[in-house]
Design a protein around this nucleic acid. Structure first.
Lengths: 226, 226
DNA sequence: CATAAATAATAGTAATGCTATCATAAATGG
DNA sequence: CCATTTATGATAGCATTACTATTATTTATG
């Protein structure tokens, strides 16, 4: 099985890290505080020296876990995709109607925070902020092909495949399940960011769940089930 | 009028640059060769020292035109949005049917290169590659609010408003014209990038115009005109 | 032709992105 | 439980980046 259902323990592709950060106290400290720091100063101003100061450990120790800050970002986003897939499988267990399962997927993607399966080493609320504002920088880079060859985008691809499969259950011969899925996932992130920083690029009104409504409607109308 | 129709001359918000790069030979050299260099090495590995070496001018001279490489990227993307709006206005002149105008918009966004209005100081083909792989980094930054306040995203917002207005002509009470527009624009860029680097995240087949077809269908179905 | 403005030439500095070395502490296995 | 591997801490250092400053020289302009 792709993940364990008891305590959430994400499968992260080993080529992303040098030493598994979940295998030690220092590693978990790196994860926890990198989320805090990236969220606070942004990915460009984040670096291992600052993180080292924050956790009172030498910069060089962090380099023993991750090649560079890009790999750390890749780790965090892979963790996130694994976590979303876990929550999705949990929520959709025993649900037969694929339309309902698809709607659940959009709900989780739009509002992924949850109290009950929060881990002690990662604040999922802050992680989500990093995801919608920084995660695309994990693949919008020159060496994307090399990283992809090494399997470093596995978790994102796996989630996209899972959602595409739900779409195929609804409309077996729909020709663009992956495009539809990534359009919605990336779209959700953009709309959240725009609603906070570039309001005239969106239509979200205060307190309204416009983003959820919009993408649910978009995807269901596209599949002719609405 | 927002732009001149004879020779294309984009309106770039002055707070983006320190000295107008179109006002001098050196400035145009900076633009032309920054596109070449960013396209070649990627935005993270691009810097003013390398650009200076390339154009045989001191780094400090480039700093007299732009505060930093981020502002230069913002200039290039603003130029691009202005250029798209120009091409759109040109193509849609005297076309009455808003559905046809909207389809034209998607076509231009999907395949913006054109021979006839290529400028001598910017290779629009290479610029487009920068746009779909780097342009989101112009707003996915910590100081987005400050830059936005200074009007630096004007051209992107203006284009989004223009396309949203076409949508409103088709369905006057459609509640999410801006979300739909940005979903399609950003989606097109993502799908192009995915089709080149992360193929399993898309459904584009070789030689097929799947991206164009997908987004045309998505937007027209969403507006109930298909 | 004089003067202002732009660019070139050169230098320098703080921060970043690492890598290396050695000492010490913690884990582990025979 | 001691010996040895392994992880971390402490410290140093170096090439590159992201600028800023200064002065000389060239180019435009009135």
């Amino acid at each position: 099985m792709y993940f364990s259902l008891s305590k959430f323990d994400p499968r992260i592709h080993p080529s992303i890290f040098l030493k598994d950060p979940l295998s030690s106290e220092l590693g978990r400290k790196i994860l926890r505080h990198s989320v805090e720091l990236i969220e606070e100063v942004g990915f460009e101003d984040f670096n291992f020296r600052k993180l080292g100061r924050l956790i009172q450990s030498p910069e060089a120790s962090i380099y023993r876990y991750f090649d560079n800050k890009h790999k750390l970002l890749l780790y965090l986003s892979s963790w996130y995709w694994g976590w979303i897939e876990y929550r999705l499988a949990f929520r959709n267990a025993n649900i037969v109607d694929p339309i309902f399962r698809l709607e659940n997927a959009i709900e989780i993607l739009t509002n992924p925070s949850s109290e009950f399966d929060d881990t002690e080493y990662l604040n999922t609320n802050k992680l989500f902020k990093i995801i919608y504002s920084e995660s695309s920088k994990a693949y919008l880079i020159k060496d994307v092909d090399a990283l992809n060859k090494d399997g470093m985008y596995f978790n994102y691809k796996h989630l996209v495949a899972s959602i595409s499969n739900i779409i195929r259950e609804i409309v077996p011969d729909y020709p663009y399940p992956h495009m539809l899925t990534t359009t919605v996932i990336e779209g959700i992130h953009h709309q959240i960011f725009f609603s906070l920083h570039l309001k005239s690029l969106t239509d979200k009104k205060e307190g309204e769940h416009s983003i959820l409504i919009f993408y649910k409607n978009l995807i269901l109308k596209q599949l002719n089930v609405i």
